[in-house]
């Protein structure tokens, strides 16, 4: 393998971001490899925007090092031609048209692309000639995405890309992200839609109060918490074959690290005793369970 292939696209080491007395990001370290989709998730005020903006180069680190393509992200001339950034808020000039906005930002990225192609991707072709001020919130997000992927950059930052988008627009957006990834682009994503991260991220960094609480693949993260089986029983039911807790609404909760085996035991027990397991739900741990557990750990 060449050194380019093994060098991480993003290398963050002991990053600290402080605003006066407030320590927004504390000793954050992570790497993003070429071609990965890395999701930076966190609770509100977790510091992910501060971390992301520092990695993007919009903000200076208080301490620690951030390298993007082996360079400081503050060196715009070196890094930005290879980077597309979709900001959390639009930031377009209201008096420019949609096409003019894409063309302007595109020219400033120093990459080449066709404005018509990008407007087609985000379904704004029919609005090419209207002013940005006349777009809806969702349309502005789509315009933002179009400028971020102008010229198919090697690295794309997507800061809450699907907020305010309808299902069809989301599908179009993810389709284009998939296309970029097929071409080898690296994606850094923040989102409040955990199912998007669970479905698409190769690795996830979970932030809370300025630090990483967990980092890894979805299965690595969810593996740390047991899977759950929920059901309710008639009042005359015999003793359960597995340890279970009774919830406040009367349902039973079984937590297990061997979902298939324990579910099998439970179903056999119910079959043998002719017990109906009402409202039976069983499934692996989801990302939102991991997310909730962070808050619980902090409160404990």
């Amino acid at each position: 393998m060449s050194s380019t292939a093994t060098t991480p696209v993003i290398d963050v080491e002991r990053l600290n971001v402080e605003y006066g007395d407030f320590h927004a990001v504390k000793d954050l370290s992570f790497q993003v490899q070429r071609g990965e989709l890395y999701a930076l998730l966190g609770t509100n005020g977790a510091g992910k925007t501060s971390a992301l903006e520092t990695v993007e180069g919009h903000r200076a680190a208080s301490s620690g090092t951030v390298r993007v393509f082996g360079q400081s992200p503050r060196d715009r001339a070196a890094v930005r031609p290879r980077t597309g950034i979709m900001l959390q808020e639009s930031g377009f000039s209201p008096d420019l048209t949609v096409a003019e906005s894409v063309r302007l930002i595109g020219r400033l990225t120093q990459r080449t692309d066709r404005v018509e192609r990008l407007l087609d991707i985000v379904d704004l072709t029919s609005k090419a000639g209207i002013k940005v001020s006349q777009l809806s919130g969702g349309e502005k997000r789509r315009l933002d995405f179009a400028t971020a992927v102008y010229g198919s950059p090697e690295l794309v930052f997507l800061d809450e890309p699907t907020t305010g988008l309808d299902i069809q627009s989301r599908d179009h957006l993810w389709h284009e992200v998939d296309r970029l990834r097929e071409d080898g682009s690296t994606i850094v994503l923040t989102t409040h839609y955990l199912e998007e991260a669970q479905q698409r991220a190769d690795r996830i960094g979970l932030m809370h109060r300025g630090v990483f609480h967990r980092e890894g693949t979805v299965s690595e993260l969810t593996r740390t918490l047991p899977a759950t089986v929920r059901f309710s029983l008639p009042s005359s039911a015999p003793d359960l074959p597995l340890p279970a807790t009774r919830e406040s609404d009367g349902t039973f909760l079984v937590e297990t690290t061997s979902l298939q085996k324990d579910l099998h035991v439970l179903l056999n027990w119910a079959q043998d005793r002719a017990v109906e397991l009402r409202e039976l739900q069983a499934g692996p741990t989801r990302l939102d369970d991991v997310f909730r557990s962070i808050g619980s750990e902090q409160n404990a």
């Binding site: 919009h58 900001l87 639009s90 930002i105 400033l108 120093q110």
Partner: peptide, 9 residues
């Protein structure tokens, strides 16, 4: 901020 997201100094 948008302009600073590009390669221009």
């Amino acid at each position: 901020k948008r302009l600073r997201s590009t390669a221009v100094d």
